[in-house]
Design a protein around this nucleic acid. Structure first.
Lengths: 107, 107
DNA sequence: CCGTATCCGTGAGGATACTG
DNA sequence: CAGTATCCTCACGGATACGG
């Protein structure tokens, strides 16, 4: 019955400004640090670094280091990250709707 | 194509720890300040007050003052708030899923 | 009862410079 | 390329007290 509890759980994991955006970027096929950084307007390397660690600890992404020269690192989504897609979809839908409403109200 | 933009818009509105929980509480029929406060474990009156204003400014709730003695105030959802339900549902689903996963991993 | 005002700590997040 | 280190600011959010 208590709908609040699972909602709190979800919010705890995806909180902050960047986590979902990073998931989206990685799901879009961006594996490299720089690629992800470029995909997300406004994010700094520092925040990206921090958030990537956080997401890894929540098992939403996987970090793989390749022993090339220089080293290359790849971030890939885990199966668990895939389960976030309906949520992201809902967020996208509502964001679109809300934007339309704001624009209409201004007119 | 840019899925990030609407997602950012949505995140901007529902950001913070409390906004969605407040929406849920109000949608559950809690109209009075104290009722809402009691529904949400851990929230303080100060935060509730602040967030209610924020939500009102985003047109997600309506604040009505009744000239009784003492004054009573009621918060009710707007039609726009109803459009958040799919999002909340998705959040609830994923929160439940995530909790299950965490518990399984610990075992 | 229904909030608001004030004070304050902490942490999210930003700017910049630097390393392997 | 892939970060880390440092420093900084400001909003989030808690505690308490008070006003209508």
């Amino acid at each position: 019955m208590n709908i609040l509890l699972p909602v709190r759980d979800a919010l705890d994991v995806i909180n902050g400004k960047w986590k979902l955006q990073i998931i989206i970027a990685i799901n879009n096929g961006n594996k490299r640090f720089k690629d992800i950084e470029r995909q997300i307007p406004g994010i700094t390397a520092r925040m990206l670094s921090k958030e990537l660690k956080d997401l890894e600890s929540h098992q939403l992404i996987k970090r793989t280091v390749y022993d090339t020269l220089p080293v290359s690192v790849e971030y890939t989504p885990t199966p668990h990250a895939a389960t976030l897609m309906p949520l992201i979809e809902a967020l996208k839908e509502w964001g679109t709707l809300h934007r339309k409403k704001i624009l209409k109200d201004k007119a």
